[in-house]
Design a protein around this nucleic acid. Structure first.
Lengths: 156, 156
DNA sequence: CTGCGATACATGCAAATGCATGAAAATCAG
DNA sequence: CTGATTTTCATGCATTTGCATGTATCGCAG
């Protein structure tokens, strides 16, 4: 009956999330142990990486925050540290007096590339042997679909 | 040729991980915003949850640490706080003088159940509409496979 | 049994994080 | 245009985290 059905679907969703989360923890543990993140924390690298993917070069602090699992204040200070280390530069947004734009410095871009290579090696040695190419593609499709659906949905 | 193939597989693994990670961030963001985690941090809940799943009731701090994305010292203090709040009890391991066993108190078990229900509701309203049941099962299978492969592999 | 390295957990301390709040600019209602 | 509300980012402060280290126990080689 309907009640059981709803219950079963609820459980399926919870178990699916549980599996996804545990897999993320397991992989992240290994990655953090790698020497790629000896001098740069994983959240810091995440910021450098996101900036490196940004075509225009400049990115609003605001948008960056959506991408990263950090509170606004923590991101503010993380960026402050990166700036002090000469890895990024801040600039007031031209079209919005409240906004702040971010860009990688040459040094920041170089460091991102260096760590990135290491990082990709680590990832591929972890994920590569675990799943076939077809499985990886399917996993990518499913997680992309999940992320899109979740991000699209309003606050709720 | 072989070089390109290796490069392509490396990229696939990296992109797969990227997708998985972003999906996790997106879902986690929404979950953290839910009122389920107003009084209990997500890492704290994770500990309560893991203890609730433990059939024998008692769990070594040690094993718990494998499960959670926290350093050993952080977990030690997290557990200390939970004990102060009366949610768990500690006990020296009978067979190993160095070890510490953990168990939920009645109050801890009750709180876990209460938050758990809320949490499952949130998850299912996020994941449920995003993927079909078949897709969820497949996602679960793939992430389980990934986690098993990654955890099995020695330190490297 | 003895000594030595490894393992499990706790603790001092500096760094990172989040919450609450503040300041400045944008947006909106009337 | 004016005043109220919202958005964006920064900052004070308490909490949480991780690194390095300390202590106790375990396991093992000799």
């Amino acid at each position: 009956m309907a009640g059981e059905d709803k219950e079963a679907r609820s459980r399926l969703a919870a178990e699916t999330w549980e599996s996804l989360f545990r897999a993320q923890v397991a992989v992240m543990r290994k990655l953090q142990a790698g020497k790629a993140f000896k001098n740069v924390a994983i959240t810091e690298y995440d910021v450098l990486f996101t900036l490196s993917r940004c075509t225009s070069g400049w990115l609003r602090l605001n948008e960056l925050n959506d991408h990263v699992l950090l509170s606004q204040s923590s991101l503010s200070r993380l960026v402050e540290r990166l700036e002090k280390r000469g890895l990024v530069v801040r600039q007031p947004a031209p079209d919005d007096g409240r906004g702040v734009l971010l860009k990688l410095t040459e040094q920041g871009a170089a460091l991102q590339k260096e760590i990135g290579r290491e990082h990709v090696r680590d990832i591929s040695s972890l994920v590569g042997p675990a799943l076939t190419a077809a499985e990886q593609k399917e996993l990518q499709r499913l997680t992309d679909k999940l992320r899109n659906a979740v991000s699209a949905r309003p606050g709720k």
